[in-house]
Amino acid sequence: MTFLNYLINGISLGSVYAIIALGYTMVYGIAKMLNFAHGDVIMVGAYISFIITSKMGLPAIVSVLAAVVVCTLLGIFIERLAYKPLRNATSLAVLITAIGVSYFLQNSALLIWGSDPKSFNSIVDFDSIKLFDGQLVITAEAIVTVCACIIIMIALTIFTGHTKMGKAMRAVSEDKGAAQLMGINVNSTISMTFAIGSALAAIAGVLLCSAYPTLLPTTGSMPGIKAFTAAVFGGIGSIPGAMIGGILLGVIEVFASAYISDKLSNAIVFGVLIIVLLVKPTGLLGRKINEKV
């Protein structure tokens, strides 16, 4: 029974990673860049939600919507201001800029909200489900997180497979030049991708802090790195890959800390990543990218 409890915790944590990883993977697929500030957008989302529920006393759903709106705008703003001017720069320049944006967000949060940890109130207010005389506990947060993850996955699949904008995104991710020749505005497609990724980051932030309620300016950075790992694990650029990578990573992390060592769990997670990449360098669902001349 404890095994099942751990499994549920792992899937729940993994669902948060998966939602974050989707943002990494979509931005990578379309803008061909690693947005290392993505994790810090999570933190901003969590702070916005915290202010609205704990300080202003408004309902949880309002706080989630506000976090989504603020992070969406923040994502578009970051892209316009920091990454768009570097569209034709080397990937190293973009990477360094992304790390800079990450520190900028963390330190801005430190200035605005201070360094003392905030205690985040869960946005979910129904009881955990207890099964088998209380031996198996499924927390309300776990249920909401896993459901959110499934809904997001379905919505994104429909979006990229069946809408004009979604198909245009796939076209841009395959060949920017050819997409432009179709009449697709590549810049607005990239903005749209950042908007979606950042909105997902806001949701992830709220869910993460509902399950792990200590909120700090650095709250987003470790989950951000884990989610990035998950995206690579599943095959960067692949939406189902991010999903599977995220959930597997969460499960491995929880099992490793439960059965092997709490302190070694991160080392084990990254160790598994290294092994997967040695065996399959493109990640679990990654496609080999044919370099065109």
């Binding site: 004009k164 796939r170 395959e174 050819a178 020749l181 179709m182 697709i184 496609r287 065109k292």
Partner: peptide, 20 residues
């Protein structure tokens, strides 16, 4: 070199042509 969208279907490629 044609630059068709290799991972999309034939019909989706044509739809992209009609983007405007």
């Amino acid at each position: 070199g044609r630059r068709i969208f290799q991972q999309m279907t034939v019909e989706e490629n044509l739809e992209m042509g009609a983007y405007t």
